Simulated scan of single mutants.
Amino acid sequence: MASKEQMSLHFDYYSVKEIANKIGFHPDTVYDWIKNRNMPVRRVGRQGRITIYWPDFAKWWSEPNNF
């Protein structure tokens, strides 16, 4: 069984759809930010599934020059 620390780390990663739901935007908007505004993402697996690490996203979101 995973430790509490390992489990909490897992929940810091979100899909584009999960992030969009969490912040109240459409997933297409999030994809636009990734493409045009250098939103930080990580690619996972062979297919390069996009995941978003919450601390990286929160830092990016709080920077005023991103909007």
Rank of each mutant, 00 (worst) to 15 (best):
M1R: 14
A2N: 15
S3H: 11
E5R: 08
H10R: 12
H10K: 08
F11S: 09
Y13H: 11
Y14T: 13
S15V: 06
V16A: 10
K17R: 11
K17G: 08
A20H: 04
A20N: 04
K22G: 03
K22S: 04
G24P: 06
G24W: 07
G24C: 08
P27L: 01
P27F: 01
P27D: 02
D28N: 09
D28V: 10
T29L: 14
D32Q: 14
D32F: 12
W33E: 03
W33F: 04
W33M: 04
I34E: 00
I34G: 00
K35S: 04
K35W: 02
N36V: 01
R37A: 00
N38F: 06
N38H: 08
M39L: 02
P40C: 02
P40S: 02
P40Q: 02
R42D: 09
R42N: 12
R42P: 08
R43T: 05
R43I: 03
R43V: 03
V44I: 11
Q47K: 10
Q47N: 10
Q47F: 15
G48Q: 09
R49G: 11
I50K: 01
I50T: 04
I52T: 10
I52D: 06
Y53N: 06
Y53K: 07
W54Q: 08
D56K: 01
D56S: 01
F57K: 03
F57L: 05
A58I: 12
W61V: 06
W61E: 08
S62T: 09
E63S: 07
N65K: 13
F67K: 07
F67H: 11
F67E: 09
